[in-house]
Design a protein around this nucleic acid. Structure first.
Lengths: 109, 109
DNA sequence: CATAACCGTAAGCCATGGCTTACCGTTAGC
DNA sequence: GCTAACGGTAAGCCATGGCTTACGGTTATG
């Protein structure tokens, strides 16, 4: 059920923006906060949430905290999403539709 | 930016449960609400949100409203997720990591 | 026509959480 | 040592949104 927390964490737009900024590579907090419409502590709080969800990792470099993206944290969410295009699932759905007695016409996929 | 709304909509656990129940095939509101720890109107509200986000579609059948899953609504979110495993992106990250060894290097945007 | 089943919507309550300011510890530089 | 930069945490404010109850509209049934 870790995909649930990934969803919850990435649902917030500001937090998602922080997360997306890390695509360009590791970065310190000040760098991440620069340009964002929220304060630096707000970004710190978002980073904590991201870290707790395993979406981000942190290392110290002198007085700086360097955050970097952690793709592994997205895996379960991705698998959950992929499961919607499933195989057996689709079969089940088709059968349910058939047995639904109503032969509606148009059905496209 | 439609993946944003998909994330926001699926972040709620109750709403996600409703959504997942539709994997087994189309279903009326009463059926979806049965067994859930919330009231039937609550489920109606969730369904409205899901529908507005394009994650679900509704058809009338007599006095019933039959809801069914709409996979298309997940596509952008899936693509967004997939984009994190990108190619050029990965290359960039590797390079950033390499330059991390020469950490005296000052790099600002 | 009267009644019941289905369900969408309105109004209002309340917990959650994202934001700000303020503060403190830690490290670098003089 | 003193001072400045970096950033994590606390406290508190306030908007958001998920929930409930209450109601009304629509369709099936007698």
């Amino acid at each position: 059920m870790a995909y649930g927390s990934a969803l919850a964490v990435l649902a917030d737009p500001t937090r998602r923006k922080v997360f997306e900024r890390l695509r360009a590579g590791p970065r310190a907090v000040n760098g991440l906060a620069a340009g964002l419409p929220v304060s630096r502590p707000a970004v710190s709080q978002h980073l904590k949430v991201l870290k707790d969800a395993g979406l981000v990792e942190e290392r110290s470099e002198g007085v700086r905290r360097i955050y970097s993206l952690r793709r592994e944290g997205l895996r379960e969410l991705r698998e959950w999403l992929d499961s919607f295009w499933g195989d057996a699932l689709e079969a089940f759905r088709l059968e349910a539709e058939k047995s639904h007695k109503a032969r509606r016409n148009k059905r496209s996929r």
